[in-house]
């Protein structure tokens, strides 16, 4: 049997899907990307641009498709899915990594003691009803004692002892305790997040504000023993002699600030079409010392009339 023509046919088939390049193409199957690092062929680029671009793209895509089709697949209802490897190209993240949740007090304790977390079922088996009931919530198992029609009362109980109420109070106390622990965990996490220095600063600032928030700005308030007077803000001045480069950068910063208009002002200016440099209203106010244009006119008229005159 001669298999040479079968082999030749197979080779021809292979040739149709194989791509030969000087530098092998880089395939990043995770991002469905192929990079062709071969230099651009100037002759064919200039001869027929579109044809050249399409042929390089075809070679690249053929290589990428070949690597994608050789990936392991899993079958789903919609058809086979190719399992992609993790991408090799590193792209920057859009947001920082999520911060891990601070552990609760119980979690810290469990970790120290090596206690494994056990998932508690939400349902429990009720023998009387012969069915699964919720552990808590509506018709929950934790309310069984409150709703049962007959309850055993201890012999030394008070006359007005209400077993249903006692069970309910106990349950409510448990809920309250849990809530208290939860809020304590939250507070602890918040305290751990912000440093003690920050916390001290905010407390000091709040105290300073409250001390000056009375009608007398704190002048006639009762002072506590050992209470220190409020510290004012100390003014700081730059040294008069600095290096030339520093002075230059400072001045340039001021100039760049002058150059840049704030957005709010810009929009106001564009709407205001007069384009006057002089603010007339403001000029009148300053010239008349706040008395208005009528007073200014009167004054001008009287000056023109008589000159110096005594007080009326």
């Amino acid at each position: 049997m001669d298999v040479s023509d079968i082999l030749a046919a197979h080779q021809a088939k292979q040739k149709a899907v194989l791509v030969e390049k000087d530098i092998p193409l880089e395939v990043d199957a995770g991002f469905l990307t192929v990079t062709d690092l071969n230099p651009i062929d100037t002759e064919s680029y200039e001869a027929d641009l579109e044809e050249y671009l399409m042929s390089t793209a075809r070679d690249g895509v053929q290589t990428l498709i070949a690597s994608l089709f050789s990936l392991p697949t899993i079958s789903t209802d919609d058809g086979p899915l190719a399992q992609l490897p993790p991408p090799t190209t590193q792209l920057p993240r859009a947001k920082p990594l999520p911060k891990p949740k601070p552990p609760t007090k119980w979690e810290q304790f469990a970790k120290a003691k090596g206690i494994q977390k056990k998932r508690r079922d939400k349902k429990v088996w009720n023998e009387e009803k012969q069915e699964w009931v919720d552990r808590w919530g509506w018709k929950g198992a934790n309310k069984d004692k409150e709703v049962q029609w007959l309850t055993e009362v201890p012999a030394n109980a008070d006359v007005d002892f209400d077993p249903a109420k006692a069970a309910r109070d106990e349950r409510k106390a448990r809920v309250a305790k849990n809530e208290k622990q939860r809020s304590a965990n939250l507070a602890r996490a918040a305290a751990a997040g912000s440093s003690s220095d920050d916390r001290k600063k905010t407390i000091d600032r709040t105290l300073a504000v409250t001390r000056t928030s009375t009608a007398s700005l704190g002048k006639f308030d009762r002072k506590l023993d050992g209470e220190k007077p409020l510290k004012g803000v100390k003014r700081k001045f730059e040294p008069t002699e600095t290096s030339a480069s520093k002075e230059k950068s400072q001045n340039l910063a001021i100039i760049s600030k002058l150059d840049k208009e704030p957005m709010a002002k810009k929009s106001k200016k564009s709407s205001d079409s007069s384009g006057d440099v002089l603010n007339v209203r403001k000029a009148i106010r300053s010239a008349s010392k706040g008395k208005g244009s009528a007073a200014l006119a009167r004054e001008g008229a009287s000056k023109g009339g008589k000159g110096k005159k005594g007080k009326r």
């Binding site: 991002f31 651009i40 793209a57 895509v61 058809g79 899915l81 920057p92």
Partner: peptide, 26 residues
């Protein structure tokens, strides 16, 4: 990042429909 920046673990091969090719001049 613009076209393909999502990390996925599987893809349906029949859904590969188009390619965006970015080439440079010589």
């Amino acid at each position: 990042d613009f076209f393909n920046g999502e990390v996925i673990d599987a893809i349906h091969l029949a859904g590969l429909e188009h390619v965006i090719s970015i080439s440079l001049g010589p």
